[in-house]
Simulated scan of single mutants.
Amino acid sequence: MKATGARPRMPLQQVRIAESIAAELRARILNADEGAVLPKQDEIVAEFQVSYPSVREALRILETEGLITVRRGNLGGSQVRRPDAGSAAYSLGLALQAARVQLSDLSDAVVRLEPMCAAMCVENADQDKVLPKLRQNIEETRALLDDEPQFLMKAREFHDLLVTSAGNKTTELMVRSLVALWSSQEEAVEETMAAHGETHTRENREAVIDAHAKIVARMEAGDAAGAERAVRRHNEAVRDLYISRVDGNEIVDAASARARRSFQSLV
């Protein structure tokens, strides 16, 4: 049966050629330095000794994967877009939303995974460089007690410092992605609160600072398990506060402009 209005199929051999070209170009993009550019179509045709349709199909594959942006016209070309933490987080967020993952599920993952990063920080040989940054963040957060929007932004930076200092790039990418998505859900709640003239109490904000200070104290003592427990207790308290204001069965929203901003901040 022929699909009405379907895109014409390429010959099987041509598809395989396009996939081979795309595989080679993909490897170059991923291994290239920042700012690298892709050769023009004429150059790719000459290098691989293939037809223009095969090259165009290879570029279409890479464009679909988000690795390049193809600009049409006389001044066109292929602009390389190397994957980064922001694009990875966005893809993960969309996958979670498409899978109908609920806010309660996402928050539970953050509550379980982020504390592990605190323990890894304690075990990290570079923790002496991490602790001054965390202490400084606490003091900067304390100075913003009466400026709720700025306070919340600075308080979230504390958690990002914990995750990025874990000393494991794979853990960092995965947990930062989830934390960024959860943070955007928190911001949605805060916007709703602000629209109704509601704010977090000063007592709530002071409790955040106190919790962060306890986490750092455990880290300074070299107590990895204690630091992990302190982060877990703090995250559970924050989760319960936000989940109490929304329907925990609500589906995560990774496609909103708010979520995109949160992902882009990871770069």
Rank of each mutant, 00 (worst) to 15 (best):
R156G: 14
S87V: 09
L162D: 03
V231F: 03
R56G: 02
A227S: 10
D240Q: 01
V231D: 03
I44G: 04
K40R: 14
L161H: 07
K2D: 14
A259N: 08
L144K: 14
V216G: 07
A99T: 02
A89E: 03
R56S: 13
A213Q: 14
S165K: 03
A255N: 14
Q49T: 11
S265H: 14
R205P: 03
A88V: 13
E63W: 05
M116K: 10
E148W: 04
A224H: 04
T170W: 05
L161I: 09
N31W: 00
A18S: 15
N168M: 07
E34F: 05
L25M: 08
L94W: 04
E34C: 00
R72D: 07
E203D: 11
R9I: 02
L62Y: 13
L173Y: 06
S265E: 12
D126T: 10
D147C: 02
E191A: 15
A99M: 05
H159E: 10
I209E: 10
E47L: 08
H234R: 01
A46Q: 13
L145V: 08
R7S: 12
A85G: 07
D210P: 00
Q150L: 08
M219R: 11
G222Y: 05
L62T: 09
L25W: 01
R16Q: 13
L12N: 12
D128M: 02
